[in-house]
């Protein structure tokens, strides 16, 4: 009983083990696997990232007013869903220009609410993608 009293007194003056998260932000490592980011000017529209992604989180869908890149022959636009992605990095490894067109940052994805239509909005894009094949 005496030893537990000494231990309790020593614990009073130690630093706590908890990090109070929303008040003090936690710094992430440089190599953390976060969101995928896209640079539109250097893309050559080879579609290798779309074939390499296991769950299919990147889709190229035809739109009416496409971008003015000269490599964009079929009039496609890039769509990415961070709620389907598994953050593995296969698309970055398959891209022929990994630093200018597609890269993986160390930012964390955002939390969404009901009105963002995360699941039902993606079914429309999948239907459009299947029609153009």
């Amino acid at each position: 009983m005496f030893t537990s009293f000494i231990k309790a007194l020593a614990n009073l003056f130690k630093k706590p083990q908890t990090i109070d998260y929303p008040v003090t932000p936690i710094a992430k490592d440089k190599e953390y696997r976060g969101l995928i980011e896209y640079g539109e000017e250097s893309c050559i529209y080879c579609l290798k990232c779309e074939h390499a992604c296991p769950p299919g989180a990147i889709l190229f869908v035809p739109v009416e007013n496409p971008s003015t890149n000269e490599k964009n022959k079929k009039g496609l636009a890039y769509n990415y869903n961070p709620y389907l992605c598994i953050y593995c990095g296969e698309c970055v490894r398959a891209c022929p220009k990994p630093e200018e067109a597609l890269w993986q940052s160390n930012k964390k994805p955002d939390v969404a609410v009901k009105s963002d239509n995360v699941n039902s909005g993606w079914f429309e894009l999948e239907k459009q993608h299947k029609e153009q094949l």
Partner: peptide
């Protein structure tokens, strides 16, 4: 684990 592979669980 986060230092070596980039994620805490599911290393890939």
């Amino acid at each position: 684990q986060e230092l070596i592979t980039g994620n805490r669980v599911q290393f890939d």
